[in-house]
Design a protein around this nucleic acid. Structure first.
Length: 580
RNA sequence: GCGGGUGUAGCUCAGUGGUAGAGCGUCACGUUGCCAACGUGAAUGUCGAGGGUUCGAGCCCCUUCACCCGCUCCA
């Protein structure tokens, strides 16, 4: 099966290059990793996708929950913004993937530091219990590492385990502690007692006693939870270990900042550093007040944006799926917090469900088979701390046996507007609005359906790719007619006998309304086959009979069936078939 | 980033140190007249790049770049 999926993907990639959908960027110079160019057909396809999204989400969105009408407006923001935007959003501080690798030969495993849980065991009394308790608040682990001299000794890290999620880690606490005890000075710990548990960075604090009656305190925490500022000038910055797989030494935490940066102005100095946006959402939040003040929108309403975003992916992979430059189609939908909703008024959670369902239906309406579309609601432990709920809409691509994310629909609460209020105005509530009925001030809650335009384009391509060995042209692209790069082709059966003279005016009439191609060269079979690979749904062929009775053949891409219509009806026929 | 693999025509690939090849595709002409038809002909290569060994390198050595697979990640 794996080989099968591999070859399917290779054939799709080959077709995309052969027919001009997608090229590797800068190919003649040896290419550049993580960047892709769309050719003539790909550019039409992606444009159709973005236009369908804009039409269906912004200009003509469906009715909301309980039949509520709502407004959608668009913005088109600069890619480079004041760099404080990214401080407020958390990207400057947090948008990085700290990684560690195992140094041991034969292991060399790579871990994301926040997925490795370590157990630290220290003689009791090093930290008092109040110190531990304090560490459960926002700063997490900070109090527990105030004695740097002890922490420099890596041997205090005596066990670690790798888990997929916090829930599993919680189940794993007891065994991790026991494992820690067994490795510590080769002494069996008589008893362990978990004294407290916390989510996120620090998982559990516990007490333990060994055979000699020595008492210990321990902490289970995420490997990335130790603030690097606690180890400013340590000659031994190796604070991580041991490897959860083989027990070997781990490398330093390596922090990759995933944002591209550059500088404005003539001087290339730190004060002028600016970032290429890693998401389009912040442009919307930053303009929230401008839009409210200028366009007479009222909550609930949404602001939409389509645009490029940039992430310095460590390892771009899987064709265009994980690119360093990509395009997003994002909505920030602003609504009332649940507690202010009147009876019968949709709550924020209902808006969240509405958008999740709307987005799934949208994909299905454009020909994505529902069994390949996998909406996945995130568990509580998987959510970002500000997020109330989130569904990843995933799709089964041929390059993986795991579904891959096309879009995230997140209920973000008031987090983003609070952050910008705090950083821009010094007041969390700076962007509050006043409720018409209750006259109460509130910061709107946000539902964020954030879709990847390139990812969906790739999904559309892989979904459309069809092989039917019984056909003369076995490979063809079954694009939804609304997305097809070329809607129709016009062929004179032969390039003589007056047929081009009939075909050309038909072509010229069609292309005023729809993307169309005219081709008079080579055999009719090759011309059909080429259009099949381009995914063109309809071909009109002018033959000898056209001269006699004025009819032309319409050939359907999906089943190669043919029918005859009057040549004057070609445009009407397309309007009928292409209008959704 | 680490490990493994692959780079020769638009595509698929052959070419084990001695003149750069095939099939398909593309283009032209002819023929045919509704499904990659047939005939004839043509164009297309920094052999991924740079360096080295050699009388001579697509082939051997070194470096580098890109892509693929795995670890990992995600809109």
């Amino acid at each position: 099966m794996a080989e099968q999926t591999g070859t399917t993907m290779e054939k799709i990639v080959a077709l995309c290059k052969r027919r001009g959908f997608i090229f590797q960027s800068s190919e003649i110079y040896g290419g550049i990793g993580g960047f892709w160019d769309y050719g003539p057909l790909g550019c039409e396809l992606k444009r159709n996708i973005k236009e369908a999204w804009w039409q269906d989400m912004v200009r003509n969105p469906p009715l909301g929950p309980k039949g509520v009408e709502f407004q959608m407006v668009g913005v088109d923001c600069a890619i480079i913004m004041n760099s404080k935007v990214w401080v407020a959003s958390g990207h400057v501080g947090g948008f990085k993937d700290p990684m560690v690798a195992c140094k041991a030969d034969g292991c060399k495993k790579l871990f994301r530091a926040d997925q490795v849980w370590t157990v630290e065991l220290l003689p009791e009394g090093v930290y008092d219990e109040t110190g531990f308790d304090a560490s459960f608040t926002k700063e997490g682990f900070s109090l527990a590492v105030r004695d740097i001299s002890l922490m420099k000794n890596r041997r205090t890290w005596i066990a670690s385990t790798q888990v997929d999620g916090v829930a599993e880690a919680l189940n794993d606490v007891e065994s991790a502690i026991n494992r820690a005890g067994k490795q510590f000075k080769s002494a069996q710990l008589k008893s362990t007692r978990v004294v407290a548990r916390a989510q996120k960075h620090t998982l559990a604090l516990f007490k333990a006693v060994d055979d000699d009656g020595n008492r210990y305190q321990g902490v289970v925490s995420r490997l990335d939870a130790i603030p690097r500022s606690q180890f400013p000038d340590s000659p031994n910055r190796n604070i991580a270990g041991p490897c959860p797989v083989c027990g070997g030494d781990l490398t330093d935490l390596r922090e990759f900042n995933l944002m591209f940066d550059t500088h404005t102005g003539a001087l290339r100095e730190e004060a002028n550093r600016v970032y290429l946006r890693p998401e389009t959402a912040q442009g919307i939040f930053v303009n929230f007040k401008n839009v409210m003040d200028s366009s007479r929108v009222k909550i609930p309403f949404g602001i939409a944006q389509i645009g490029k975003a940039f992430r310095n992916e460590i390892n771009p992979r899987n064709y265009t799926f994980r690119s360093r430059e990509f395009e997003q189609m994002e909505i920030e939908f602003f609504c009332k917090p649940d507690e202010l909703c009147a009876d019968g008024e949709p709550t924020a959670m209902e808006w969240y469900e509405f958008w999740r369902n709307t987005r799934i239906k949208w994909y299905e309406s454009l020909g994505i088979r529902s069994d390949k579309l996998r909406p996945r609601q995130q568990g509580a432990e998987e959510l970002a701390h500000y997020s109330r709920a989130c569904t990843d809409i995933e799709y089964m691509f041929p390059f993986s046996n795991e579904p891959q994310e096309l879009e995230g629909v997140a209920h973000r609460g008031s987090f983003d507007l609070n952050q910008h209020g705090k950083f821009a105005r010094g007041d969390e509530n700076a962007f509050a609005v006043i409720d018409d009925e209750t006259k109460k001030k509130y910061v709107p809650h946000v539902i964020e359906p954030s879709a990847g335009a390139d990812r969906f384009t790739l999904a559309v391509i892989t979904e459309a790719y069809t092989v039917d060995e019984t056909r003369a042209s076995p490979e063809f692209m079954r694009f939804h007619p609304r997305l097809a790069p070329i809607k129709a082709a016009v062929f004179p059966l032969v390039a003589k006998d007056g047929l081009p003279e009939i075909a050309e005016p038909i072509y010229r009439a069609i292309k005023t309304q729809f993307p169309a191609q005219y081709d008079a060269k080579q055999s009719i079979g090759k011309r059909y086959a080429r259009m099949d690979e381009a995914g063109t749904p309809f071909c009109f062929t002018i033959d000898g009979q056209s001269k006699e009775d004025g009819t032309v053949t319409v050939r359907n891409r999906d089943d190669a069936s043919q029918s005859r219509i009057d040549r004057s009806r070609c445009l009407d026929y397309l309007r009928d078939k292409l209008t959704v």
